[in-house]
Design a protein around this nucleic acid. Structure first.
Length: 370
DNA sequence: AACACGGGGCT
DNA sequence: AGCCCAGTGTT
């Protein structure tokens, strides 16, 4: 390990316990200042035009940061403007129904983000003015160390450094930090004090955004564009042509599983399974039912293979077979199941998980033609 | 500390 | 097919 620092104790203030080794290009105060300035100059010149950057506001920042958790900019882009039209401010979001809010999030994934964002909107109504410190922000639902630092630095200039995946990549490369981390979250936690030590306190918001922008557009995980990097001269790994080696994070094992899904149509309606509200996963959303979703006395029969789909969820690799089927007899579904026939013309009113929305559209079209 | 949570894009 | 992305909450 090229340098050491003590454990982060959750402080957002500059960490005096971070020691940069004397032989590193960033060891002097002057170099640190130069680093901050050149990063900011690069950002001013090269930042992307993004909808939450044009006429920015606290609300836009919060919405974008929620949407961007574990989610790429290109994925968020098709949602952001529509969201702002449906829910232009905290007040409109706070008074909207949860169903409507989750429906607007359909396809983005991690649906608890939408519920937490709505809860946050309600909680923030109780303030005369929004809090400007990361500690208070972290008490809001769905707000952790990253969002707290991002929101307060960008909107209020609060000197709180963000430590996300981009920051981990950039810092481990700049310092050729060869510590092996058990997972990304651990790396972020451990590197936060260093990020704080490098923060440009003249403009914490832009500094944070500049680091993330650099990570997203130059300091890629694979094949980083070191030759165009504005801070190459401060980067030990980059100068060794070695950037791709960092960070060193343990891999998680991928679990493989196979699921059957049933396509059952009756009276121009499609049978869907509504996932219970108390479910950890996809609560309140609809999916094509699995055989296990049916009560003992009703078994789907006459199955015919329609398609096989593959996708990944977290560390799971899933193969899903879609089977056309019929319910035996003309049995009514009892109320204690979560199965509902949804008329095709009302399919757009319910919230489907992303892949199921896609599959249903595909199969509907395919079967109409057949 | 370990795990669950969605979905998609890139290699 | 694996990897990871502007992470957070729960156990």
């Amino acid at each position: 390990m090229p340098f050491s620092y003590e454990k982060d104790r959750g402080r957002m203030q500059p960490s005096s316990d971070v020691k940069i080794p004397d032989n590193h290009p960033l060891s002097s105060t002057k170099a640190l200042e130069s680093f901050g300035n050149e990063l900011l100059a690069w950002y001013d010149e090269h930042k992307r035009e993004l909808p939450w950057r044009t006429s920015p506001s606290l609300y836009k920042t919060v919405v974008s940061e929620f949407m961007l958790q574990q989610t790429r900019v290109s994925t968020v882009l098709p949602y952001f403007d529509g969201w702002m039209e449906k829910f232009p401010d905290f007040a409109s979001l706070a008074s909207a129904s949860e169903e409507k809010v989750v429906k607007a999030w359909e396809g983005l994934g991690y649906y608890s983000r939408a519920r937490n964002l709505r809860k946050l909107a309600k909680e923030i109504q109780a303030f005369d003015a929004p809090p400007e410190d990361p500690e208070t922000w972290q008490t809001f639902p769905g707000v952790g160390p990253y969002v707290a630092a991002a929101v307060t630095s960008i909107n209020f200039g609060t000197p709180a450094a963000v430590a996300d995946g981009n920051v981990v990549r950039i810092l481990t490369r700049i310092f050729a930090h060869d510590e092996q981390f058990r997972d990304g979250a651990t790396a972020q936690r451990k590197l936060r004090p260093l990020a704080q030590a490098l923060l440009n306190e003249n403009n914490p918001g832009d500094h944070n955004q500049a680091v993330m922008e650099l990570g997203a557009t130059v300091c890629h995980r694979r094949s980083p564009l070191c030759l165009t990097c504005p801070v190459l001269k401060f980067c030990q790994a980059g100068q060794c042509g070695d950037a791709e080696t960092y960070p060193i994070i343990d891999k998680r094992k991928v679990e493989r599983l196979s699921i059957d899904r049933l396509w059952i149509v009756r009276d121009n309606a499609l049978l869907l399974n509504r996932i219970p509200d108390d479910s950890k996963r996809l609560a309140g959303l609809y999916e094509l039912p699995c055989p296990e979703d049916f009560p003992e006395n009703i078994r789907p029969k006459n199955t015919l293979h329609l398609a096989t789909k593959r996708r990944a969820i977290a560390n799971q690799s899933i193969e899903e077979r879609i089977l056309r089927a019929e319910l035996e007899g003309n049995r009514e579904l009892s109320d204690d199941t979560n199965l509902e026939f949804i008329p095709f013309e009302k399919l757009n009113e319910v919230t489907l998980s992303g892949p199921h929305r896609k599959w249903v559209k595909e199969l509907q079209k395919k079967l109409e033609l057949a």
